[in-house]
């Protein structure tokens, strides 16, 4: 197990190295010129050349990449071209908001998805099962911004229960978290349903019933904990999915996380910030997958690692 963990960790590091190289390369070859953005339209060629030299952008690609990586290993993610602040500082200031949203979103997904899955499994084949599975199909087919705008319209504009956007109180968190919750619940519902159906068929559940335990007790104490095991690994993968869609949700609700930071940076070709946020997101994705792989054998000893 320890050997496996170390091997996976090394693999994760290599993947992150690759991601950093490709992102850096893509941003290097892109037709948009950051120096033009900094210098402004009326800058003389001399000024442009000076800024280029100052930022080290006149160096060959590999030299630039080497400098960036050398800085990165010392905790230096470079400086924003336009905000004149360290990227690490900017990201550190925004990250807590994103992590809070992620935690709340995953919590909402689990609450909605697991409930749907358990109900569907218990009434398998009935109309409630069919309609829940249809619902789960709809939620995986809906784009984030549509669900976000719909919730915004109903609960903020029409009912006025929650603020339209912003950050600060628990009320601000509800709608963005619900958006993620509704969207992610479909996958969890389907997983939970099939897992639960399988567990309900197993011998130990039949034994528990035969012992004379009540139906409620069998479901809550015997079936559900076992059915949830395979779901735990999904949470790790979900972190990656969240990181992928973060720009949209934060944009709609004006949530001041790293998604918004990235969005502003993309519009102004602020390359160090784009690079930084991409790396942080990739880190989260890789860590999430790693966690999923490492947790599975821990919670379910039947799964052996070679």
């Amino acid at each position: 197990m320890a050997g496996y963990a170390v091997r996976r960790l090394v693999q994760a590091m290599l993947i992150l190295l690759g991601v950093s190289f490709i992102t850096f390369f893509l941003l290097y070859v892109l037709p948009a010129d950051p120096v033009r953005q900094i210098a402004g339209r009326s800058a003389t060629p001399q000024t442009v050349a000076n800024i280029r030299e100052q930022l080290g952008l006149d160096q060959p690609f590999l030299v630039q990449y080497w400098r960036y990586m050398a800085g990165l290993f010392q905790g230096d993610m470079g400086r924003s071209y336009l905000q004149k602040t360290d990227v690490a500082t900017l990201i550190a200031a925004r990250l807590p908001a994103s992590l809070l949203l992620m935690a709340a979103g995953i919590f909402a997904e689990l609450c909605i998805g697991l409930t749907m899955g358990v109900i569907a499994a218990l009434w398998r084949g009935r109309s409630i099962d069919n309609s829940l599975m249809m619902t789960s199909f709809v939620t995986v087919s809906a784009p984030q911004f549509v669900v976000a705008l719909l919730l915004l319209y109903v609960f903020a504009v029409k009912l006025g229960w929650f603020p339209i956007g912003g950050y600060g109180t628990a009320a601000h968190l509800v709608l963005p978290a619900m958006t993620l919750g509704v969207l992610g619940s479909g996958w969890y519902a389907r997983m939970m349903r099939s897992s639960m159906v399988e567990v309900l068929r197993s011998d130990f559940v039949r034994t528990a019933r035969a012992k004379g335990l009540t139906r409620g007790r069998v479901i809550l104490r015997h079936a559900m904990p076992n059915a949830i095991l395979p779901i735990i690994a999904m949470i790790g993968i979900d972190i990656g999915i969240f990181m992928g869609g973060i720009v949209v949700v934060e944009g709609v609700f004006g949530w001041p996380g790293i998604g918004q930071l990235a969005w502003q940076a993309i519009q102004r070709v602020d390359i160090p910030i784009i690079m930084g946020v991409t790396l942080v997101s990739a880190c989260a994705i890789v860590l999430g997958n790693l966690l999923a792989d490492l947790i599975t054998p821990l919670v379910d000893p039947r799964i052996r690692i070679r």
Binding site: I22, G240, G245, V247, W263, I266
Partner: peptide, 10 residues
């Protein structure tokens, strides 16, 4: 491991 949407937007 790439944040796909971020990459696409970029």
């Amino acid at each position: 491991a790439f944040p796909a949407l971020l990459l696409a937007i970029c």
